[in-house]
Design a protein around this nucleic acid. Sequence first.
DNA 1: TCTCGTGATGTTTACGCCAACATCGTAGCC
DNA 2: GGCTACGATGTTGGCGTAAACATCACGAGA
Lengths: 338, 338
Amino acid sequence: MTETFKPPSQADVAALAGVSSQTVSRVANERSNVDEETRQRVLSAMQVLGYRPNSAARALVTGRFRMLGVISFSLSAHGNSRTLQAISEAAQTAGYSVNLVGPESQTGGAMRKAFSKLTGQGVDGIIMIEAQILDHPDLRLPSGVPVVVADGDPDQLHPSVDNNQAVGAEAATAHLLGLGHRTVWHLAGPQDSYSARRRAAAWFSTLKRAGAPVPAVLYGDWSAGSGYAIGRRLAEDKDVTAVFVANDHMALGLIKALREAGREVPRDVSVIGYDDIPESGFFHPPLTTVHQDFEEVGRLCVSLLLDQLAHGHRPGGEERSMVTPQLVVRESTAPPPR
Amino acid sequence: MTETFKPPSQADVAALAGVSSQTVSRVANERSNVDEETRQRVLSAMQVLGYRPNSAARALVTGRFRMLGVISFSLSAHGNSRTLQAISEAAQTAGYSVNLVGPESQTGGAMRKAFSKLTGQGVDGIIMIEAQILDHPDLRLPSGVPVVVADGDPDQLHPSVDNNQAVGAEAATAHLLGLGHRTVWHLAGPQDSYSARRRAAAWFSTLKRAGAPVPAVLYGDWSAGSGYAIGRRLAEDKDVTAVFVANDHMALGLIKALREAGREVPRDVSVIGYDDIPESGFFHPPLTTVHQDFEEVGRLCVSLLLDQLAHGHRPGGEERSMVTPQLVVRESTAPPPR
DNA sequence: TCTCGTGATGTTTACGCCAACATCGTAGCC
DNA sequence: GGCTACGATGTTGGCGTAAACATCACGAGA
């Protein structure tokens, strides 16, 4: 009963339609120079047989796979999976499929491995989400595959799409300063994250510009747990009246620690997050945060990549898109206690 | 300066190593019957030229793509992206890559389209995450590609991997009953979700078995916002002392609504969630919930699929794996107010 | 010594498709 | 009427690989 199903080929369709396989190919690829009547005949023959072009054969001869590779470190990071989803949708709309790989670690070696895994599988282009290559290997392997980086290294050699961290972090910091806080503490993301670094940099310069004292940066790992741990330490310092946290998850943990220490948000301490995850409006208190448009980032990545594919990718790739985030004021921020 | 980079082929390697291309093929595929000395010579020739087998050519001749297709509705659902991540890792370990598609909608038509998109691209097997086909089309298209369903329809014709919703929902309900609540309300997920249905069914039968009255089921859409909306209505009913919510996000919204109505959790109302997202321990109050092992689900999906690939997939696919969830008691549940 | 088996290697072929070129017929033009 | 031009279609070839089959050398056993 193990009937070996043999999918129909162009030749089968051609035979049924009474044309040459080349004509079938032309119909399949929507060439113009096919008589309408013939076209219909071929089309219906395709339908009858359930013909689907063999992508491997097509890729072999054209060298195009109609497939985009995506390298994403962790999908548990909210932004990454949102971006991925948007990439997948945009790619599909453009007739491309998405090949997803996650490197085992974030070392240059693992990166390169993931990279070569993709080029080996055969992709037309690669998008790296939240790249954080520590040892700057030249990733432009001999494959000659164009690359776009989302939220990655600004020094990178590839075109990139970024959330404008500077704008977001500045808005957050300025908001707190504007509320009357003497200064603003910062709970940053991990040091090897470029997004985290850029947020910290903008926080720093905003403080400087305002002439506010600059407290030492604290580092978390994006998790609520790390926010909680840092929050416990921070709660002991009565000078702390405002904290800009680099993402909503950590802010959640921070707020819990603060509350446990008897410091209410926003009465005693104002807290502001980053990302605007769908849940943050339902936190207690509802979290003031910076909204990021991950969908837009994903879409831009794809269109940038398709551009390169269409026009041949220029080695110097300086193209850089920025997506502007938006401060969302809710109830976790208030003027400092008197 | 547009130097067309032509990747080296087996023939190039063969020429450099002074062997036939077939020998190169044997080395590339790790066949046993190649002399060690020859093997080394070929290997180093490969290295020199930077040879990578052309996956399209290989797929063309073998009919295997070493690629798994994944259909996932929404990656914003926490469980889905966790499962996807695990699938991606497991697939990679087994030497497969992952082709991700998201159907535009959850109708049978969109599903079939996503399905045929994958088979058209060329995948060896397909995993559907949280399938909820409404009109039960027979998805076993002529492609003859094996399918595994994660958290899908129990009546489905395909092998599946499920979180054991019955166990989890029963544990949650029984926990509340055991605390002394007269009965337990249920805020379910959308009606077209099989996971949601199964949780509701287990909640229902647990109540029945305990002889407790069965309140009408309430339906949300998994979002915190929907939990909040339902919570506002629920807060008006003073009889409500315990609510089993079908996921953590909705529980968050529900708790907020309850609090706003002056009903404290767990003092006045006990709330229990589902999923155990990493943040739920940092909610206010820390959420009692049911932990799901999405990683295990992902791994099992891949191994089930690879099994089918290896042994030829039997049409009747009754294979069904269950992953057992675990009740995590935190601070959102307590005995009812006296 | 001859045969036979076995392991290492080479040769041929086919996978399904599309590019390039070839062919054919017809319409338009002088 | 014969020529060109062009649109519709067919023919040939080759992409890079692995399966199937062929070859060859060499050692074991009769």
